[in-house]
Design a binder for these strands. Structure first.
Lengths: 258, 258
DNA sequence: CACCCTGTTCCAAATAATGGAACTTTTTGA
DNA sequence: TCAAAAAGTTCCATTATTTGGAACAGGGTG
């Protein structure tokens, strides 16, 4: 089934290497050399891959870039968030973006780098650990406890010591996010990286979107963080009312946050 | 041949609609309903597409976003350009980016929106007419005249009155770009949009990259444009020397530019 | 120059894709 | 509210395509 094999190649390219050689693929997948060679050649001819003639290796094609751009393009809630976040980055200088939940990961849909010296760059398409992210936990506020428990049946290793390492620890954070309507992370996924996020329901796509602000953990004092929380909550409130929906989350509470 | 059909679906999604329904695809491709239904379902199961359960329509999947991000990621010249352009946007407030040539089109690889009120937003993956773009003409400075003539055997319609409409007009602009080492466009592809760009060889990828600045045509005076040209040329000069190559293009000349 | 490593081509056997028809579900409109 | 049309799905025998071992071709290296 060549389609399944082609999809396997793409998924394999997604996780890890940016490049594939024929023999590499052959051994990794356990396919005969001839099959690997033929499949890669066919995929390149169809525009799914590109071939570097000098190294004879294959990489993702331009088609992927173009299709990736179209992902979620035109979604009204997402576009509205994106526009507001751009203003927020301009006013505060911090990096901002929007993520969604995919299994136990978050995937960045939109982002822009801040103007502060320490730039946090997570371009659209970046995947990260949902359990070690404020965005991930805000998005996990929606699914039921059972659903979350099922996804984390085997709990993944902590990316950093600060991240939750057990289901109980994660659920504590998720519950905090549920009651407060916002969440923050500190040095949990990447060294020195901190973030604050909220969440908003996207009716069209039947998922939730999590707008976020990211900054250096050492860079921002608690008072300023409270300010950022308020900005994010005001933003979602504005957008929810604009799209004729009940503002869902409570606003502006409990800045102590544990 | 299911792989070819799947690729056809992806290319079809790229050009135009963001959505496909079964019957739509069936009629567009001339396939039986059953084949269209099966293929779309299979592609969704393999993660190439996503299905909107309410509308029963299919769209590109997350996989495409993730593979798109990886496109050209890690290419040293591209990353260097991207970093420098980010500074340039911060200093000047204008939108900047990097494009490549693909046939008679340009495709944006990297971009960021400026801070000026009129924002020119062309996210990575955006395709545009190379003949009606300063970036496109800078990139066409490399191929031979014959090669260009072959690509434009049938000359495409002008996107705007200002754009070249014949091969002769295009070649005049390309030759200007060749001698000057930079090019500008004014209201040629999109109403009121102007841009300036240069080009740099990318040895690794065996293509040329065109960094650009984009702005509102009415917004920027000739003196400031000269300034922008100098900034772009200094940037490429810096990068060329950093990567141990002869600076190729002449610098800082003929600002009148026709 | 010969060897090893990687990639390509070939062809018969085996497997998976194809498309018409029947069937189910959703939408339309009277 | 209900019937008819439209859109989508499933089924299955036929057909065509994928598959993989083996032989072949480059190309770099000692």
């Amino acid at each position: 089934m060549s389609l399944a094999n082609a999809a396997a190649v793409l998924h394999w390219l997604k996780r890890g290497r940016s490049d594939v050689a024929v023999l590499e693929l052959s051994t990794a997948m356990g396919w005969p050399k001839s099959s690997a060679s033929r499949l890669l050649k066919d995929m390149a001819n169809l525009g799914l891959l590109e071939r570097d003639e000098t190294t004879r290796r294959y990489r993702a094609g331009l088609l992927m870039l173009e299709l990736g751009r179209a992902y979620a393009a035109g979604d009204p809630v997402l576009e509205a968030l994106d526009a507001e976040l751009q203003d927020m980055t301009q006013r505060t200088g911090f990096s901002t973006g929007v993520s969604i939940l995919d299994g136990i990961d978050i995937v960045v849909l939109r982002s822009r780098a801040g103007t502060h010296p320490l730039r946090v760059v997570t371009p659209p398409g970046t995947r990260g650990p949902a359990w070690a992210n404020s965005t991930g936990r805000m998005l996990m506020a929606r699914p039921s406890d059972e659903e979350i428990a099922r996804r984390f049946a085997i709990f993944p290793p902590r990316p950093r010591p600060n991240a939750p390492g057990t289901l109980a620890e994660l659920m504590a954070l998720v519950n905090r996010a549920r009651t407060c309507g916002w969440d923050e992370s500190n040095d949990e996924s990447l060294p020195g990286l901190a973030g604050i996020s909220v969440a908003i329901e996207d009716i069209d796509r039947r998922t939730a979107l999590a707008p976020y602000v990211a900054f250096s953990a050492a860079q921002v004092e608690p008072e300023e963080r409270a300010e950022l929380v308020a900005m994010l909550q005001d933003m979602t409130h504005r957008i929810e009312t604009r799209f004729g929906r009940e503002p869902s989350a409570p606003r502006l509470q409990d800045m102590a946050h544990g």
